[in-house]
Structures are given as structure tokens and as C-alpha cells.
């Protein structure tokens, strides 16, 4: 269990934790865009920069991303040194030039004292900050229907050939992790549309609402999901669980629980 010092506060974290986790445990506020608890750290947005030093180091500390730097014993972390703040400010300023109309970026800019972008504003404003959360979520699902295309300033997130992605199952994982709401989707008449593809929805056997796409169900089945897990929507599953728990707490037999399912 490494113990480190974040902005003067001593904090002990489990082995394998990151500096970001340690800093947050110590009460420091560090902005992030490309970080998500459920996904591998990526280190792309560069907002979570901190300055570290170790006992015995001389000179200036090293600037690293806290989201993927391992919390090591004895590490001294400064989350808002002058260089860190200045660098973070440049990053936010650049993001504002890229995404001038995006509320999340505007808020970050305000928090960093930026009124308007110091650089040439993107002639084709976008809400995509290229945090890579969507593609990582899609990879994590084991689907990999979308990916980054091209490189450098022309980098974008897209399905293959910019056509409706054949591998997509319409699970919405990408849209749900997107921090700016850039990934558009819609649902109507038992159909869900995302990335230009239309998916037939399967209805919940409890409440009758459409709750997952047929492609999603097929995908889950192919990976060995039990049929009963696909019948109910999350709300109905929770309700059923609650009913079971109530029954158990009233001392009713386990048979009742079995009957309920």
C-alpha cells in the first residue's frame, strides 16, 4: 500500500492505484476528459497533468498525466503548480478553439479563466473532443464497430468507410460515455438509430417498453447469456429483485422467490 503526498496531504492507496485516484482520495480537484473508471487509462486529453517528484530528485519536478501514472510510495504530487496550471490552460484554450460551442468545453474554459479562444477558431466547430472514450467503450464491449480514422489534425471517430457500421449492435455504450453528447442517437416506434444504422428493438416482457436491440440480444446470446436475462429491462429486473428481497425479509420461503422468477 503506497503512501504518497498530494498537495501536502498524506494519502495511502491500494497497490496498483493511479496518482489520479490518490489525488482525488486526498481531496484534490483534477479535471479530466478522457478518463473513465471502467476503462483503461489512456492519457490523451492531457488535462489531468500534475507535477511529481521523488525523494532525491533535484531540479524541477516532472509533469505527468495522473490518470496513468502509478501511485508509488514516497511520491510527492503537486496538482496546481504554476507550470501545470499554465500547461492545462493551453490545453483548454486549444480545445475551446476546436469546440467553441460545446458547453462542457466552455465551462472548462471559464474555470481556467479563458473568456475566448486565443487561437484560430475551428471553421467547422464540433462537439467531439477526441477523448477516445467511445472507441474504448466499444472495444471493451468486444464489438469494435467504430475507431479513430486518419491522424493528426484530421483525426476523427468514425465507422468503417464512414458507412453504417456492420459490427454495431446498437448498445449505446459509446453515446453513454461521450462527455459532450456528440454521438447522436434516437429511438422511436420500437426502432433505435445510431451511426446511421436502424435497429429493431426487443420489448421488455415486464413493462412492454423497448429495452434492447435485437442485435444486442443476439450478441449476448452468442456469448452465452441466459435467455431470462434478456427478457426484462433493467427497471423491471430491479423491481423483481426488490420484490424478492421484500419476500425474503418477510420470512417467506425461498420457493416464493423461485416462483417470482
Amino acid at each position: 500500500m503506497p503512501t504518497l503526498r498530494v498537495d501536502g496531504v498524506r494519502v495511502t492507496v491500494p497497490a496498483g492505484a493511479t496518482v489520479l485516484a490518490a489525488a482525488r482520495a486526498a481531496g484534490a480537484e483534477i479535471p479530466t476528459l478522457c478518463h473513465h473508471e471502467g476503462l483503461e487509462p489512456w492519457g490523451g486529453c492531457r488535462l489531468c497533468l500534475v507535477e511529481i517528484s521523488k525523494p532525491g530528485w533535484t531540479g524541477e519536478g516532472k509533469i505527468v498525466t495522473s490518470c496513468n501514472y502509478p501511485a508509488e510510495d514516497g511520491l510527492v504530487v503537486r496538482t496546481s503548480g504554476e507550470r501545470v496550471v499554465a500547461t492545462r490552460r493551453v490545453v483548454v484554450d486549444l480545445l475551446l478553439a476546436r469546440c467553441p460551442g460545446t458547453p462542457l468545453v466552455q465551462r472548462l474554459a471559464r474555470e481556467h479563466g479563458i473568456e475566448e479562444a486565443s487561437y484560430e477558431v475551428n471553421p467547422e466547430p464540433t462537439d467531439c473532443v477526441l477523448c477516445g472514450l467511445c472507441t474504448r467503450a466499444c472495444d471493451r464491449m468486444g464489438v469494435s464497430a467504430i475507431a479513430s480514422v486518419s491522424r493528426g489534425a484530421s483525426r476523427a471517430i468514425a465507422p468503417p468507410f464512414n458507412q453504417p457500421p456492420p459490427d454495431c449492435i446498437g448498445c449505446l455504450a459509446c453515446a453513454e460515455v461521450c462527455p459532450t453528447g456528440h454521438i447522436a442517437w434516437s429511438e422511436a416506434d420500437g426502432r433505435r438509430t445510431i451511426w446511421g444504422r436502424v435497429f429493431e428493438m426487443q420489448r421488455c416482457e415486464g413493462c412492454g417498453r423497448p429495452h434492447l436491440t435485437a442485435a444486442q440480444a443476439g450478441w449476448a446470446r452468442a456469448r452465452g447469456a441466459a435467455e431470462q436475462d434478456l427478457r426484462l429491462c433493467d427497471a423491471c429486473k430491479r423491481e423483481q429483485l426488490a420484490r424478492t428481497l421484500r419476500a425474503v425479509s418477510r420470512g417467506e420461503t425461498v420457493a416464493a422467490q423461485a416462483a417470482a422468477s
Binding site: 469494435s144 475507431a147 479513430s148 468503417p160
Partner: peptide, 25 residues
């Protein structure tokens, strides 16, 4: 060609999106 890339994806067991990603990178 598009259809060749689809075949490459299938035969190398690489998702098509990743093939397209590499092809454009």
C-alpha cells in the same frame, strides 16, 4: 478496395473498424 478490406478483416480476425483505422492512419 473496400471489398478487399472486408475480406482482410474477416480472414485476419480483426474488426473492420480497426482495419479502416489502420488504412487511414
Amino acid at each position: 478496395p473496400c471489398h478487399v478490406l472486408e475480406q482482410v478483416a474477416a480472414r485476419l480476425h480483426v474488426p473492420l473498424a480497426r482495419v479502416f483505422s489502420v488504412a487511414t492512419f
